[in-house]
Design a protein around this nucleic acid. Sequence first.
RNA 1: AGGCCCGUAGCUCAAUUGGCAGAGCGCCGGACUCCAAAUCCGAAGGUUGGGGGUUCAAGUCCUCCCGGGCCUGCCA
Length: 327
Amino acid sequence: MPKLFSGIQPTGELHIGNYFGAITNWVELQEKHDTVYCIVDLHAITSDYDPDTLREEALEMATDLIASGIDPEKSILFIQSEVREHVELQWIFNSVTSYGDLTRMTQFKDKSDKRDFVSAGLFDYPVLQAADILLYKASRVPVGEDQVQHVELTRRIARKFNNRYGEFFPEPEPIIGRGARIMSTADPERKMSKSDHDKHAIGLMENEDSIWEKIKSAVTDPGKAQGDEMSPGVANLFTLLELTAPESTVEGFREDHREGNLMYIDLKEAVHENLMAEIRPVQEKKEELMENRSHVEDLLSKGKEKAREIASKNMEQVRQMVGVGPT
RNA sequence: AGGCCCGUAGCUCAAUUGGCAGAGCGCCGGACUCCAAAUCCGAAGGUUGGGGGUUCAAGUCCUCCCGGGCCUGCCA
């Protein structure tokens, strides 16, 4: 089975955009790939964060992922900083990475000009990401559109390394989100994002009433019959419905919309109801896991061991090729 | 290592010679709406980065610290 790597930052809670966009995809990919899923806390520290809660957040992210269907039996699930080879490989990669390439990363440019303090870590972020992927010699990387450039950089780094030191790393290919693009409920022109304010994002673990408030207040349009045309907000609600409701239900609402009879409040109720049906088992599973924290810690510890086994073996060879110790 | 500039509400910024800490946007509540949006009404929001000092009175002046930006030097 092809080896696959993906990571997620532990900062902020999972929202349904993450869930339908990435996580459900991760769950499916487990079946036909050797999956390595990583909670990337070392990436999180490149921006503002709280050192007192980071570990707890990482643990909670693991809990959420397992509740969502990531199976520690099928996948290697672990916390990045627990495997020190990530950083070691990053340093070696720093030396085969073109400075010019890094300055062209659009995500860095976007992020850096919004902040007053720009850390060198933020700039070097894509190199750590390359190390994350290649440390496990992964050949597939599921990512969002915005990360494709980083995977391309990873390929360039792999190529450069292989040219200089000998064939070793695969050139990984991005698997570009088959997952849905869920838009903000408050501003349906924008993708639902952790970094936006509360009312933009619906938390995966949020309680039912609070989710209803957000769906009810989701932006729509002045209403009434526009044929097949759909405003972004309404389209977003239909996306959610498609993801959670039976086809016949969706078709019914579609017809109402075409005929101009659709009451958005009805659509919103249906979205809420079906969304909850999808999410509730995940929330229940999480509660169950939270009752026994040490079980999750245990699973993470096992994940760490599995990750280390691969990482240390690969790094041993890398060190030899590069000419550094420890030998 | 030295010099210069900056730090005020969630965000962008005001505040006369030192004289009651404010506005816009956002957030929250309400009206309107099938639900929203827009609009209208209303409310909340602050240790002015922190400590010390001068003064009747400090966001404003002095001093130290923290944080951020820029310039120069040292090392060769």
